[in-house]
Amino acid sequence: MHVTRKAKTAAIVVASDWVTVLGFIFGGCCSNVFALENLVRDVPKCGNLITFAQFFFITIVGLPEHIHWPADAWLPRLRERQVPLQRWMVMVGLYFCVSILNNLALGFQISIPLHIVFRSSGLIANMACGYFVAAKRYPAQQVVAVLMVSAGVVIATLASISGDVPTHESVLWYGVHESVIGIALLTLGVVLAAMLGLYQEATYRTYGKHWKEGLFYNHALALPMFLLFRGDIASQARALSMSRPVALDALPLVGACLGSCVRLAAVPALWLSLAANVLSQLVCVSGVHRMTAMSTSLSLNVVLNLRKLVSLILSVLLFKNSVTPGMLFGCALVFLGTFAYSQVGSGPPPIEAKRTVHRHPSSRNTTPLCVTTSQCTQRRTRRRDST
C-alpha cells in the first residue's frame, strides 16, 4: 500500500507539472499573439522594439537566480554554468536572428493568420535540416505527413496574397511586392529555427536539460546586439508614445488594486499593449523551455503547432481577419499533417542484437561460459571433486 501511495503521489506531481506547462504555453503564447496583433495594427514596423523589450525583461527577471555575491568580492558574479558559454553564444545568435526575422516580417503585409500558419512549417525545416545536416533518416509515414504540412503552407500562402492588389506603397525594388519580402523573411526564420532546434537538442543531450540557464543566457547574451537597431528602436518608441492615453484607474485590475493612487496617471495605450506582450512572452517561453526538459522535441513541436491553431482561431474571431477558402484548406492540411506526424512517432524500436558467447578454439565443451565469479568457483570445485 505504501508503494501504491508513493506511485499515486508521483503521478499527481507529474500531472500537475504538465498542467502548469501546458497552461503556460497555451495561456502565455495565445495572450502574446493577442497583444502582438494589437501593436502591429497601429505600428506595423515595431518588431525591433518588441523583441528588445522581451529580451530585456526576461533577462532582468532571471538575473537574481544566476548571480551571487561572494564574501570576498566587491561586485556580484555569475554563478557557475552547467553548459559552456560558447554553446550558449551559438544558440543566442540563431535565436536572435529568428526573433528579429519573424517580427520584421510583420511589417511587410504579412497577416497574423499567415504568420502563424507559415511558422507551423517548422516540422518540414526540422526534417530537412536533420536529413542534410545531422544525417538522420525518417520513415515514409513521417515524410508523407510532412509533405501534407508543406502543401498546406504553400496553399495558405498563395491564398493569402492572391487577393492583394499591389499598390504604389506596397511595391518595393524592381516591382517586388512587399508580401514577397515578408515571406522570404519568414522562410529564413523557419530554417534558422530548425537549425537552432537541432543544436539545442545536441547541447541538452550532452550537458543535460538546464532549461532555466538556457532561458537566461539566450536572452541576456543577445542584448548587446540591439545596439545595431538603437535608432530604429527609439523611433518605434516615439510612435508608441503618440497613441491615445489611457487612465490607469480605468483598467479593471489596476483600478481595483491601487484605487485613488493612480487616479491621475495615464499612459499611452500601446505601451500597455507592449507591457502585456512582454509579460505574456515571459510566461510563454518559460513553458516552452520547461517542456524541453520534460519531453522529446517531437512532443514539443506537436504542442506548439496545436497552440498555433488556437492562436489562429482567436486571431480570426477577435480581430476579424479575412480568411479565404484556400487558406482554410491550407490550415486544415497543416494541422492534419502535424497530427499524422505525431501519430507516426519516431519509428519502430531498434531490434536488439543477439548475444554471442565467445569460446576458446581448443575447447570442446558445449557448456556456456560462466558469467559471475561464484559460477566459476562452483564449476572448478565440481571438476576437482570428479578427479
Rank of each mutant, 00 (worst) to 15 (best):
L114H: 05
V14C: 01
L274F: 07
A53P: 10
D385V: 12
L172T: 08
V190A: 00
L223Y: 11
T20G: 11
A11P: 09
S121N: 05
Q86T: 13
G23W: 15
P361V: 05
V33L: 05
R244H: 14
Q86V: 10
M91E: 05
S150T: 12
G337M: 00
A293I: 11
S160K: 08
Y138I: 06
F335N: 00
V61A: 00
A202G: 12
V180A: 09
D249L: 09
A340M: 04
V21N: 04
V144F: 15
S150C: 15
V283N: 00
D17H: 12
F55Q: 01
L186D: 00
R238V: 06
A71I: 07
V133H: 13
G152A: 08
L298N: 09
V19Y: 04
A35F: 06
D249Y: 07
T356I: 02
P84L: 00
P113Y: 11
G27C: 03
G23V: 13
M89C: 01
H2P: 13
Y174E: 15
L300S: 03
R238I: 04
P368N: 05
S362D: 10
I116P: 04
F229D: 15
V288I: 13
V90Y: 02
S170I: 06
P325N: 12
K8T: 11
N277C: 10
S162G: 07
F56I: 09
R244S: 13
P76N: 12
L196S: 00
H360Q: 13
P245L: 04
T367E: 09
A159Y: 08
Y217P: 02
L317R: 03
L317F: 06
H68N: 11
V61Y: 01
